Amino acid sequence: MADAPKVSRPMKFPYTFSAKLAQFPWKYHLKNQWLWKYYAISVVVCIPIFKSISNLANSPANVAKWAEIRRREAEEHHH
């Protein structure tokens, strides 16, 4: 493996998906497109919000309330 010759030039047209990924100008797009910067900022801002919503939805009181509602609903359907 270490003795393998290096590729001297990229393919004129990358046929495989991995070759397309390897030749894609990632650095240029990350540096010059606003979408990537704002995507990263939005992920950082939204993680605490989603975590607090998840904690509220999965609290023991809410889980018990949900189970009771479903139990009553199932009881109504069986009678």
Rank of each mutant, 00 (worst) to 15 (best):
A22F: 05
Q23A: 11
Q23C: 07
F24C: 04
F24E: 01
F24D: 05
F24L: 08
F24N: 00
F24S: 00
F24W: 03
P25Y: 07
P25M: 05
P25K: 07
P25Q: 03
P25I: 10
P25G: 08
W26A: 02
W26F: 06
K27C: 04
K27G: 03
K27N: 06
Y28Q: 10
Y28E: 02
Y28N: 04
Y28T: 01
H29Q: 03
L30A: 08
L30G: 03
K31G: 01
K31W: 09
K31P: 06
Q33C: 06
W34T: 06
W34G: 01
L35T: 11
W36I: 01
W36T: 02
K37P: 06
K37V: 06
Y38K: 10
A40D: 11
I41Y: 09
I41G: 09
I41F: 09
S42T: 10
S42Q: 07
V43C: 09
V44I: 14
V44C: 10
V44E: 11
V45S: 08
V45H: 00
C46T: 12
C46F: 11
C46P: 03
I47Q: 02
I47F: 12
I47S: 10
I47P: 00
P48A: 07
P48M: 02
P48W: 08
P48T: 01
I49F: 07
F50K: 13
F50L: 15
F50N: 13
K51G: 07
K51I: 13
K51E: 12
S52F: 14
S52T: 15
I53G: 15
I53L: 15
N55Q: 15
L56D: 10
A57G: 12
A57L: 15
A57C: 14
A57V: 14
N58Q: 14
N58T: 14
N58R: 13
N58P: 04
S59D: 10
P60I: 05
P60Q: 08
A61S: 13
A61M: 14
